[in-house]
Write a protein that binds this DNA or RNA. Sequence first.
DNA 1: GCTTTGTACTTTGCATCCAATATACTTAGT
DNA 2: ACTAAGTATATTGGATGCAAAGTACAAAGC
Lengths: 224, 224
Amino acid sequence: MQRLEPIKQSENLSDEVARRLRRAIREGHLKPGTHLVEQDIAEQFRVSRMPVRIAIQKLIDEGLVIKEPRRGAYVHTFSSKELDEVYSIRVALERLVVQYALSNWSDAVAEELECIVERMRQAASAGDRQAGFELDSRFHAILWELSQHAILIEVVSSLRSRISRFLTEANDVLSPTELNMHVEAHQHLVNVLKQGDVERAKDAVADHILDAHERIRAYYSYLD
Amino acid sequence: MQRLEPIKQSENLSDEVARRLRRAIREGHLKPGTHLVEQDIAEQFRVSRMPVRIAIQKLIDEGLVIKEPRRGAYVHTFSSKELDEVYSIRVALERLVVQYALSNWSDAVAEELECIVERMRQAASAGDRQAGFELDSRFHAILWELSQHAILIEVVSSLRSRISRFLTEANDVLSPTELNMHVEAHQHLVNVLKQGDVERAKDAVADHILDAHERIRAYYSYLD
DNA sequence: GCTTTGTACTTTGCATCCAATATACTTAGT
DNA sequence: ACTAAGTATATTGGATGCAAAGTACAAAGC
């Protein structure tokens, strides 16, 4: 018989619980500092405490939640310093991503990225911030995958996940002008990538991330 | 009353189990590919499966263990590609570490590092590889801490933990000459750091990490 | 009225139990 | 003798129960 792809139904309850908790944090339904009471969460999801415990453990290791022994788990309250930290690390790592990604570059990828940018442009003119955000995520995820470096992807996506709450919130308050600038920033990035100059591409992506940092930082200071 | 330091006895069984499993992997008692059967581990440690499950979950998130749904957890078998990946990320991040560390530099730190180098020198001439390794770890941990960037420390130490098994093994086969070279490499690093030139210091630490990479890579290819 | 001790309640952490699934072994059929 | 199905066993995933630690509130003493 022909060899077929093995099916992986990784659908544990704990994975699903973790996914939902992540989303709740990202979308602001679970605010920083919230005490995550296992029993409560278990009841809401109609499961036992066990998958909830495993899920919370995952979130702890992802840095979304902190735990105080025998007291419980709390949604991590991000300081502006930590935000700066995440971005300084991301700049360094996204440079690496681009370096490796370019060595796997192809016209098909270029086309895919330009397609996404085009759809971002449409979303921007329609004022659809949600769609724009998702396309932005897709755009960077494609670059990550293209790097073919699993651990790098793991680390950089984990970093992005930590600040996802700020990303979504800041995205919701983008002005139409900012939306357009954001689209053209991605267009510019694709243009540079297509030229294939590694150093220029690395600088371009670094600028792009630093821009995002400035935007988020502005939003964050607006919170205080 | 005077304010006293709060006591944190983070001693859960799961933390202790995780610590011991980590050490067992690092020291080679749990070889790559080993199936981690919860029941067996629980019996060996005389605890129930529950803390073992939490501990294994931690190790999964640290990248030391991989899990196949409904089949179990296995000690992760590191490929040479992953080794290269970890090092390429570490180079980028250790540069950041040094950059931040230098802004918190003090004579006391310089003295502490030189003290460690001196003890490394003694350990090297005594042929005590174990002590040398621990001092090496201490040396870098001090730089990490000096950076004052919690997330950076978390990521970079997690990366080092992933390859800890190779580090200890390669350390055990160091020749006397290599031991001495290793000591002087650290001495050189301290000298450069003391001069306070950020760019030179970043390059120096990058070279240092790349050297380590070469050494480990040589050991790894020797394994095949 | 304020502080401090004592008590009731909440929540975590660990153990045990049960069900579902995957693997290994055995047996039957060709 | 080899393949294939069926069964037994091992192992994970989830639910529940219980004890210890922590928290909050109330009562008693100053």
